[in-house]
Structure formats: C-alpha cells, structure tokens
Design a protein around this nucleic acid. Structure first.
Lengths: 107, 107
DNA sequence: TGCAAAGGCAACTAGAAGGTTGCATATAAG
DNA sequence: CTTATATGCAACCTTCTAGTTGCCTTTGCA
C-alpha cells in the first residue's frame, strides 16, 4: 500500500499487461486473466497478489470465481505526488540540460 | 531507454532518492551523490548506471569529476502514455469499484 | 616527480523475484 | 453423490539484483 509497493508492482511488464487488460475489461476472473499469456495460472496468481498488495486491484469472490477490479487511485497518487514534481520544473530542467550538455549525443 | 527500463529504474527507492537529490540540485558529482547514503561508492555508481541506461540522467566528465544531470523527459513520457490512460477513466472506474465492491473493506 | 583525490572495473555473495510442479479445497452441474 | 471447474497453498528451482571488496586508472596539485 506504500508508494514503494506501487512502484515495484509497476516494474514488471506482465503486471502492467494485467492492469491493461483490466483497464480494457474490468471484473475479469482469474481464469480469463490467465489466457494467452504463456504462463501458468499460479504465476499469474502471484502477480495479481502483488498488484493487490499494492492496492492496484481489488478482488471479489463470486461463487467459485474470483473477480478482479482495477483501482486507479494509487497510480493517480504517484502521478500526482512524485511524477508531477518532475514535470513542473520540466522546461527549466530541459533548458539546463541543453546548456550543460551542449554537443553531447542524446543516447 | 525503453519504457520498461524506466519503470524498472524507478522501482528502487535509492534510485528515486538519487533523482530527488538531482532534482533539488542538478549537476552533482559522484562523490557528492554518495554522501549520507550509508552505501559504498560502487553501489551508487551502479544505481546511476541504471538511471543513465533508462535515460533518466545524463553525465558529463569535467576533469577528474563526473557531473550528473536529471532528464525528466522519460518520466513525462510515462506519465503521458501510460499513467494518463488510467487517469482519463478514473472517475468511471471509481464508480464501478464502488458499485462492485460495496461493503468491502478498503484495505 | 610524487602523492592524494575522483572515479572505473571485475569478481563474488546474499537475498529477492519470477516461475514451475504437485496436491488440496470449494463450488457448480448432472 | 459424483465429477468437473475454478481457485488456493506450499515447496522448490533458477535467475536477477543490490550490495560488497579489492585493485587499477586518471587527474589535480605541491
């Protein structure tokens, strides 16, 4: 639930894909989220557990199925508290970069 | 330089602290960035290498010193291309959550 | 020239992360 | 009741990651 948990959860491409899939269609079952992923169900379960620990998804048990719902709030919080900080000074920082690194390759 | 590199680079709290420090004072030397961090110079060097590989910082050699500059562009790109996607539908998703999870604890 | 300061390189280690397999549990359907 | 479906739990393995230590190179300066 900490900011670090959210960053770590977002670090894995498979977990970002899971969030993307839930963004496209919310409330999917575990089985649905496992399809076409070239990975065992247990691996996906672990990823979902990490996403849930970071409060990025919430789950609901319906009968024998488990439904998964995207929670965009922590992502918003990160954008707000951390990324925003770098964007506010963006133009200034870019100008500084240009001045200080004049002539360097843009690798 | 890929989006995955940026996410992975941002996943480590020490690397985020390094970016914070460069955000507060740009153009610091390696030695300066090592101070008060309870970690060897080589460990910090590795973190900086990862940040540079993700294009989050740029470096310049000045004499025997190495200066480090923050590059906020990849962070902006992430906020724009990926995080923005989740924020646009934020209110809708929140409403869906509330409806679907009515009565659940907000852990 | 000689020494100290700033940094680079490489090998090694401990622990975390991502994945698998095997089996157990709970619900739906016939 | 029996069987199939959907998911949970736990041990294990392998790879990556973060950190260390030890030594080498380059630059500033007396």
């Amino acid at each position: 639930m900490s900011m670090d948990d959210v960053f770590k959860a977002l670090a894995d491409p498979m977990r970002r894909r899971l969030l993307d899939d839930l963004h496209a269609r919310n409330g999917q079952t575990l089985g649905a989220l496992c399809e076409g992923r070239g990975m065992t169900r247990q691996a996906v379960t672990k990823h979902l557990a990490i996403l849930q620990a970071a409060n990025l998804i919430a789950t609901e048990k319906r009968g024998r199925e488990k439904l998964h719902y995207l929670n965009p709030v922590p992502i918003h919080d990160i954008a707000d508290r951390w990324i925003g900080k770098y964007e506010r000074g963006r133009l200034d920082a870019l100008a500084t970069l240009k001045r200080d690194l004049e002539g360097q390759t843009d690798d």
